[in-house]
């Protein structure tokens, strides 16, 4: 989706000298992304597979003109790393890191809005547009260029769904993993409005899960402002109340956030909801004919 990530986007990796950062810097480059630099305080001057490492984001941005950062920095230091990126002028920050305190994220979201930057995540697999670029950790082999936009609160389940879509013969325009936390930088509504405007996207697949009311809010938005067909799957129909199902955000609390409530709201907004992930491509086919 050229609006936020295109072939010319220049990506830095914060935390590039760590195991994950290194692995995914390579994988992004293999995907076709322009990974121009890495940042790890104290490791400036090193090179990871010919990618120069800088001590701070400001130096990396000045030297390379980077506009996107993928953050692998551990949770206790992640808030600082994201502020550093935003202050250096980065416009898209993808936070892969899991377990960042939500209080930190609430402030980061407010700060990003003041500075006109976009955050995707935290606790997310990032964003990928086959044929253009990828910023994050999604596995390269699942994608096929096409016109289905995918947005999701999960990681692995997203890969599974994208894989079904590709195997069925469709392909993806852009896939965005929004993240599994209670507070995330880009919401379903914000991502839906991007897909609605994206000329490369013909239909939208939304993968939601229990907890919060993001899907209900999205349903309201779809009813009013989305003209493209939307297909959804909601994970967690069999989840018990009061228990966190892996994701910090996946919890039914005080009777709110159930799969039933989300499915009902989405169906009332004209969204076709699949009972199983594997049935998503069939519903896409019906909607596109």
């Amino acid at each position: 989706m050229v609006i936020i990530l295109g072939k010319e986007s220049k990506i830095i990796v914060q935390g590039i000298t760590g195991h994950q950062g290194m692995f995914h810097a390579r994988a992004m480059r293999d995907f076709g992304s322009k990974v121009v630099a890495g940042v790890t305080p104290g490791k400036g001057g090193e090179k990871i597979d010919n990618i120069p490492v800088y001590n701070d984001v400001d130096a990396a941005v000045k030297a390379t003109g980077a506009d996107v950062s993928v953050v692998f920095v551990p949770a206790p230091y992640a808030k600082d790393a994201v502020i550093e990126a935003i202050d250096a002028g980065i416009k898209l920050v993808v936070i892969v890191t899991e377990h960042i305190p939500f209080h930190d994220v609430v402030e980061l979201v407010l700060y990003s809005k003041i500075k006109g930057a976009r955050i995707i995540g935290p606790n997310c697999p990032g964003i990928a547009s086959p044929g253009l670029s990828k910023a994050g950790i999604m596995p390269n082999m699942i994608f096929k260029p096409g016109n289905i936009g995918v947005l999701s609160r999960s990681g692995t389940l997203t890969y599974e769904v994208v894989n079904y879509i590709s195997d069925f013969g469709f392909g993806e325009s852009t896939v965005i993993g929004l993240g599994g936390d209670q507070v995330i930088g880009t919401t379903f509504i914000e991502a839906l409005s991007l897909f609605e405007k994206d000329p490369d996207t013909k239909a939208i697949v939304m993968v939601g899960e229990i907890g919060g009311s993001a899907e209900e809010d999205a349903a309201e938005f779809i009813k009013k402002s989305v003209s493209k067909p939307v297909i959804a799957y909601i994970a967690g129909r069999s989840a018990p109340p009061g228990k966190r199902m892996g994701h910090a955000g996946a919890i039914i609390s005080r009777g709110k956030g159930t799969a039933e409530s989300k499915i009902k709201a989405l169906e009332a907004a004209g969204v076709k909801v699949a009972d199983l992930p594997i049935n998503i491509p069939k519903l896409i086919k019906k909607q596109l004919i």
Partner: peptide, 30 residues
């Protein structure tokens, strides 16, 4: 045992769809 919270939840749902109940939710993570 599955990997990823979403996939683990979906796994429980698929079992339920086949009238079987899971004994646990265990997300191996990445």
């Amino acid at each position: 045992i599955a990997n990823g919270a979403g996939l683990t939840m979906a796994t429980l749902d698929i079992l339920k769809n086949n009238n079987a109940d899971a004994g646990d939710f265990l997300d191996l993570g990445g």
